[in-house]
Amino acid sequence: MQCPKCHAPMHTFNRNGVQIEQCSGCRGIFLDYGELEALTRLESQWQQPAPPPPAAPQAYPSAPAPAWGAPQHGGHGGHGGHYGGHHRHKSFGHMLFSS
């Protein structure tokens, strides 16, 4: 995915079972739904003797889409589909600019 602030690519890191996206440009961090809570929970467990198993990695929360939408919705955001990152299909680029 791209950084919503500076649009540089974001890289995924795993911290104690929590997936964190960090921007390669501005170093900003993107937390999915529930990840802040997961990190807070890990922090509070820091001094406890027996931490529970780490939280399961989460998929990206997907934006709502209509029932007739393309099947890749609900999957891992930014992957699949026809947009393919920086190698966007030429035909789609043309479509963006025409009536």
């Binding site: 995915m1 791209q2 919503p4 997907s62 934006a63 889409a65 209509p66 007739w68 939408g69 393309a70 099947p71 890749q72 919705h73 955001g77 930014g78 699949g80 589909g81 026809h82 947009y83 299909h89 789609f92 479509m95 963006l96």
Partner: peptide, 17 residues
């Protein structure tokens, strides 16, 4: 429509919306 058809990435659609 571009987003629903799987052509516009979710992050660009969400920036617009």
């Amino acid at each position: 429509a571009w987003y629903a058809c799987g052509l516009l990435p979710p992050d660009e659609w969400l920036r617009f919306l």
